[in-house]
Computed example of a mutant assay.
Amino acid sequence: MDMAGGKSRLTWAVNLSAALLVLLWIIPTVGLLISSFRDRDAISTSGWWTALSASEKNVIERALAPGEAKPEGDLWVIEGQVLAGQGVSVTAFGITSKEPEAFSPGDTATHARGHTITVQADGRYRIEYAEEPSGSRGQRLFVRAETPPGFTLDNYREVLFAEGMGRSLLNTLTVTIPATIIPVLVAAFAAYALAWMEMPGRALLVAAVVGLLVVPLQVAFIPLLKLHIGVGLGKGYLGIWLAHTGFGLPLAVFLLRNYMVGLPGEIIESARVDGATDFQIFRRIILPLSFPALASFAIFQFLWVWNDLLVAKVFLGTGEDQVVMTGRIVDLLGSRGGDWEILAASAFVSIAVPIFVFFSLQRYLVRGLLAGSVKGG
């Protein structure tokens, strides 16, 4: 009973810890998503958690100029609306900077010059003069207004079209998709050879793969770039595909080899007895059985390449047809650093695809990693 009770408490602790980690990850993501649909004024005056509730703001507007006054009986009247078209609700107003919230909606304020001002809750105002007014500047109105929650797609339109994020999205896909498929295919062949094909020095090759896992990729940047330039690749998509393939292969071979070693040997031996070649065994038996491991590494590689900035800076040019999304966001931080709505929309465009890929294939990620860690040998 004690052991069962201890296990139960441990299970609750693990579940609670996992829930807290998920919550800590989700909260910033939700905040970023909500902020990406808000305008600059809303972001600067209130937090994203208030987006679904009305917010208050203080504004100063000038009424129509005295020349717009129209006769009405013995009076001259100016009528208009503050914050027109914004759907606001006025909660207080004033006519001087010393008392900007002295009156409630519907009250009548009397100016020192004798005319009266009334502002309604919907923003409509009425100014009455005893005689025809003169001058070129309208009456200043200090208004505190309650703004209903509102969202806009303008941030995404500007980011995708005006700021070039749409082009960078295509550039990133052009880099990421081949840089994910190529190392998966190459590593699958290598992993099968290291797992099931007899060859001299196989153990040394496995040890070399493990050793390459701890080598920082930064040490290879300069010699690899010189090699690309020397053979005529220069800075382009082919060069970055090969670079990401080389940097991702050690982990890919290690994961896939560990998984393939744990597959039932009886199936492979039976296929060989039936006359199947190594390529037929690989294509018809190993690949279908290794799909969870292939998918788990593909997720890792996709996320790493998608979020990469350093490799792209080294092996790609700076033209519009080669700037990836991470590079575009860095540029926006310099040119639009104060426009939080633009940065939020840019960031969410950047993370939307990885989030979709992860949640679509996460069951294969867990299965592939667990199988590789348990069955590896």
Rank of each mutant, 00 (worst) to 15 (best):
K313G: 03
T174C: 09
V305P: 04
V374F: 13
L212H: 03
I299D: 08
T29C: 13
G31N: 09
G94C: 14
L251H: 01
Y125M: 12
Y125K: 09
V349N: 07
G5K: 14
L370G: 07
E68Y: 15
P223F: 01
V330D: 06
P105V: 10
D122Y: 06
L263W: 11
A42V: 13
Y259E: 01
V305W: 04
A92K: 11
V215C: 09
A179D: 03
T96D: 13
F282T: 12
L212S: 08
F359N: 11
K70C: 01
F93R: 07
F302W: 01
L204E: 09
T318H: 02
I342P: 02
I240M: 02
P216N: 10
T110L: 04
Y364V: 01
V143T: 13
P133C: 00
A69V: 07
K375I: 00
A84F: 06
Q86I: 08
R363T: 14
A293P: 15
P149R: 07
L332V: 03
F291S: 03
I182R: 04
H115V: 01
E266H: 02
K57Q: 15
L343C: 07
V253K: 14
I355K: 09
V219R: 06
Y156G: 02
W306G: 02
T50A: 13
L333T: 06
L256H: 08
G248C: 15
H111F: 04
E61N: 04
G372P: 09
K57H: 15
S36R: 05
D308A: 01
T180M: 01
I117M: 04
L173P: 05
A352W: 00
R328N: 03
P100W: 00
K313R: 11
I240K: 00
R363G: 10
W196M: 03
